[in-house]
Computed example of a mutant assay.
Amino acid sequence: MSDHSVLTVIGKDRIGIVAEVATLLAEYHINILNISQQLMEDFFTMIILVDTEACSISRAEMLTILAEEGKKRALDMRLQDEALFQAMYRI
C-alpha cells in the first residue's frame, strides 16, 4: 500500500459509526491522520486521511475487507490512494 490514502464512509446515521471505523482501521495498523465528518439529513458522511505504511495486509486485501465490513454495517466505504486526489488538483 502507498503511505497515504483517503477513506470515504457514507451511511444512514447511527451511534457508533466513527468508533466502528476507527477500530477496524486500528486492527490493520492503519493510522488516522485527519478526519472530517458531516451529517446530511439522515446520512452520515466521513472523509478520513489515513497513513497505511504499517498496514499488515495488502491494498487489495484491505479493499476487500472494507467492502465486506461495509456491507455488514450498511456503510459504503471506499479507500483511494492520496495520489489520485493530488493529481486531480494538478489538472
Rank of each mutant, 00 (worst) to 15 (best):
M1R: 08
M1G: 12
M1N: 07
S2E: 13
S2V: 12
D3W: 04
H4P: 00
S5C: 12
V6W: 01
V6I: 15
L7F: 02
L7Q: 01
L7S: 01
T8V: 06
T8E: 00
T8L: 03
V9L: 02
I10L: 05
G11H: 07
K12R: 15
K12Y: 11
D13C: 04
D13L: 04
D13P: 03
R14L: 07
R14T: 02
I15T: 11
I15C: 05
I15E: 06
G16W: 00
G16L: 03
G16E: 01
I17L: 05
I17R: 00
I17S: 05
I17W: 02
V18H: 01
V18M: 02
A19C: 08
A19M: 10
E20C: 08
V21L: 05
V21W: 01
V21M: 03
A22R: 02
T23N: 08
T23Q: 07
L24W: 02
L24S: 06
L24A: 09
L25A: 04
A26Q: 13
E27W: 04
E27G: 08
Y28H: 12
H29A: 14
H29K: 15
H29T: 09
I30V: 15
I30M: 05
I30C: 03
N31C: 06
I32Y: 02
I32A: 03
L33A: 10
N34A: 12
I35H: 09
S36K: 11
S36T: 11
Q37V: 02
Q38A: 14
Q38E: 11
Q38V: 09
L39Q: 10
M40Q: 09
M40T: 09
E41L: 11
D42S: 14
T45Q: 09
T45F: 10
T45Y: 06
I47G: 01
I47E: 01
I47A: 05
I47M: 12
I48C: 05
I48R: 00
I48S: 01
I48G: 00
L49N: 06
V50P: 02
V50C: 11
D51V: 06
T52S: 14
E53V: 15
E53C: 14
E53I: 14
A54L: 14
C55P: 00
C55W: 03
S58H: 10
S58W: 10
S58Y: 10
R59V: 11
R59H: 14
E61A: 15
M62S: 01
L63Q: 12
L63A: 09
L63N: 12
L63C: 07
T64R: 06
T64S: 08
L66C: 01
E68I: 08
E68G: 09
E68C: 05
E69V: 10
G70H: 08
G70E: 03
K71S: 11
K72S: 06
K72N: 06
R73S: 07
R73K: 09
A74Q: 10
A74T: 07
A74I: 04
A74W: 06
L75F: 06
L75V: 09
D76N: 13
M77I: 15
M77K: 04
R78T: 15
R78P: 00
L79I: 12
D81I: 05
D81N: 10
E82G: 02
E82M: 09
F85H: 10
F85Y: 14
Q86V: 15
A87Y: 13
A87S: 12
A87H: 14
A87Q: 15
M88V: 12
M88W: 07
M88R: 11
R90L: 12
R90S: 13
I91H: 11
